[in-house]
Simulated assay, not measured.
Amino acid sequence: MKIIVGITGASGSLYGYTLIRALYHLGIETHVILTEMGEKVMQFECAVSMNELKNYATIYSNRNLFASIASGSFKTDGMVIVPSSMNTLGAIANGVGDTLLSRAASVVLKENRKLIIVPREAPFHLIHLKNMTTLAEAGACIMPASPGFYHRPKEIWELVNFMVARILDMLDIDHELLERWGEPKL
């Protein structure tokens, strides 16, 4: 299995970092693109450097449009953009493929693979909603970073794991990150 993870400059880098580590621990080949602001926000919010990320995945420059993941012939099982800024979401919704992240997302859509976009913005205005609708109509899954609370979280990592678990579920990847509703405790 091969998954692409995009990380933009929206707040919420912990979701992306946790997903990358989970994929690594599940033995899934992971390819990561960070926007310039995504890298800065990751460092600021998580104190995680590019060198640390290289331990878990193959990292690409967002300017490298010659990267293998920019081509439909490079088979992947899907892509997750987490967190997604509204700038990146809007670029993808409008077919702008001038960065590796937006190009890879466009390729995933055209190849009918899973594209999961996790916007981390509130509130949404009409343009945000229209762009999300456009992407949903094109086949993307829009999954706002809105963790549930029915599992009675006590610490932030439980909220983060909830969202990462939902992302893994959408990718049909088995995991044990959360207690499922109505199932006995693990």
Rank of each mutant, 00 (worst) to 15 (best):
I7A: 00
V80Q: 09
V32I: 12
L14N: 05
V108R: 04
T8C: 00
G95R: 07
M132A: 15
I20G: 06
A165N: 08
K75Q: 11
I28R: 03
E39T: 03
T8H: 00
P147H: 08
N161T: 03
G95D: 00
M37D: 13
S84V: 02
V160R: 03
N64W: 01
S85M: 02
S68N: 14
G16D: 10
R180I: 06
G97K: 06
S146E: 06
I3Y: 08
Y17N: 13
S68H: 13
D77N: 13
M79F: 11
W181Y: 13
V118A: 04
L126R: 11
F149T: 15
G182A: 07
I3Q: 01
E111K: 15
H128R: 04
T58A: 06
Y150S: 11
S11P: 14
G27R: 03
R180W: 14
G95L: 02
A93H: 02
T99P: 02
A104G: 05
H25K: 03
S84P: 01
F162S: 09
G97E: 15
R120P: 08
I167F: 10
I92T: 13
S71T: 10
T133D: 15
L178W: 01
N161A: 12
L26A: 01
P153R: 14
R63W: 02
S102M: 03
E179R: 09
D172Y: 11
K154F: 05
V164N: 05
P83A: 07
M42R: 00
Q43C: 04
D77P: 01
V41N: 00
P184D: 10
K154G: 14
Y60S: 10
A104V: 10
L129F: 03
A122I: 12
R113C: 01
E121I: 04
K75T: 06
A165C: 10
R166V: 11
L186D: 03
M163S: 11
V160T: 15
A104Y: 06
T76V: 14
H25E: 13
S84H: 09
Q43D: 01
H31W: 03
T30W: 05
I20A: 07
V5F: 10
G139S: 09
G139F: 08
F74S: 04
Y15A: 12
N131F: 02
N131S: 04
I4T: 14
T18V: 04
G97Y: 05
I167N: 10
A70R: 02
A22Q: 09
S85T: 15
R152D: 03
L53P: 04
N94S: 12
S49M: 12
K2C: 01
L171W: 12
L19Q: 06
V118P: 08
V96W: 11
A122Q: 08
Y150V: 11
L177A: 04
F74W: 13
D98C: 04
I142F: 02
N131A: 02
L26R: 08
N161G: 09
Y24N: 15
I28C: 07
